[in-house]
Design a protein around this nucleic acid. Structure first.
Lengths: 250, 250
DNA sequence: TTTAGTGATTGAACGCTGTTTAGTTCGCTG
DNA sequence: CAGCGAACTAAACAGCGTTCAATCACTAAA
């Protein structure tokens, strides 16, 4: 009980981080010590971290440091890390805009929603694992589900087909956005090639006699730039629905 | 440096576990203290744990305890936990049998392989996350990829369409098997209903005016028993290939 | 048989994670 | 101004993957 509030001799790394962070701030005249900690500020900070450093870098300590607070303070606003994950996914989903269902353009509308969701997942690398870890409690995820269902049903797809297709699409989108951005982060030292897919790299140096088709497909799979593969799969999922409502080529 | 090898006064929990486990064993006359630790025994033990307790329960300490060894001993046979994960997935994939491609039955064959892989994933709950965490190094996963590609190509599907469809199928299978078994483990106290899906439970108690289609779809989605939803999605993915057998851009 | 050597194994530690808690501080209300 | 309740701090806890010097069991050479 001797050294409680001295300015020097700081031991705790949390204290240190807070002090360093407070260097560029105005003293604020003692009242309202800082911006009060809120759930929204916590979720925003967490999303900022995931966007910049990936989902693995998201720890409670890291979030607390981002907010110049201690980790314990977070638990006054958020029950778990699981709840924080859930809130992040919710905020992410809330940024997806849903169109008014148009029966004539239902497939384009559905694809657009899926692309939006994919881009949100890709923006925060690895965050889909937050959805996998625990069943989402957020209403925002249900909002997208409802919107996508509405588009399909408006397009004439039966309720059961729509529900199953939407479910499959969500699963595919999530898995795609977790696995897809697996690239070598380091730019090539020679400059030009750079950012090749890690899996493709390993597939290249593979005995072609053992896996002939796989090796042959490596080049052709990568032929599609950007998200052609993604669009193709959505075409299969949603295109298969039209084949059974109004005839094969309606 | 006083108390090194006394039989009583064991402090370390590892020692304790090893001692308890050794109670039912024959002394073995000092040589070959136990079955020697091998990679295969480690992988088998790990799979046993995942099968019984799920992927979250798989820790190096848990594996070591299962083998009556210390955790450090594992690292003489396995570099990382990541490598152990990889070996587990490899062993899992090696149990999938691939048929000789038959052009007339290619779709049934493809569906069968996918079902096998799904069942393997479902047998070890959550193990697909091991695939997600790091790109798989195992050749057994490539074997399935090659086999499935061979089936599609033999069926007349173009190389690019086949590669994309197989990729989509693998992503879907993995996501399906991670998300699907999310059920309330506890059987209903009244006996009969039991083992309802956790997500469905929460969807039931949802304001129908906010999410009318979602709520309406809950019943009809669950109408399919077993893995009807899974088969339906595979039908969409592979069925869409026959519709444009010449390739996606033909 | 003795000896040197080699690789597996041990026990204990390190740094990291999420989470809890006693005690302090702060801002608002009576 | 007093007091109360909520927010916050600092420190711990158990568990995770991983590392490492010391020790052990066994093999191969002398």
């Amino acid at each position: 009980m001797t050294e409680k509030k001295q300015s020097r001799g700081i031991v705790s790394s949390d204290q240190w981080a807070a002090q360093v962070a407070a260097l560029g701030e105005t003293p604020r005249a003692t009242r309202a010590r800082r911006e009060p900690l809120t759930v929204e500020r916590i979720v925003d900070a967490a999303l900022r971290i995931v966007e910049a450093e990936g989902f693995d870098a998201l720890t409670m300590r890291r979030v607390a440091a981002e907010l110049h607070a201690t980790q314990g303070a977070l638990y006054s606003h958020v029950r778990d890390k699981a709840e924080l994950d859930d809130l992040m996914v919710g905020k992410l989903c809330s940024q997806v805009t849903l169109p008014e269902p148009d029966a004539d353009r239902w497939m384009d509308q559905a694809r657009d929603v899926c692309r939006q969701l994919r881009d949100q997942y890709l923006r925060y690398p690895g965050i889909w694992r937050a959805t996998v870890a625990r069943a989402p409690h957020s209403l925002d995820t249900l909002r997208i589900n409802e919107g996508l269902l509405a588009i399909l049903v408006a397009g004439g797809v039966s309720l059961r087909s729509a529900a199953w297709a939407v479910d499959a699409a969500f699963l595919y989108i999530g898995a795609y956005s977790v696995v897809a951005p697996r690239r070598t982060t380091e730019r090539g030292p020679d400059g030009s090639p750079a950012a090749r897919d890690e899996v493709v790299e390993r597939l290249r140096m593979l005995p072609p006699d053992l896996f002939p088709i796989t090796v042959a497909s490596v080049e052709v799979v990568n032929s599609g730039e950007g998200h052609d593969r993604f669009d193709y799969t959505l075409g299969l999922l949603f295109g298969g629905l039209t084949a059974r409502i109004g005839g094969p080529t309606s």
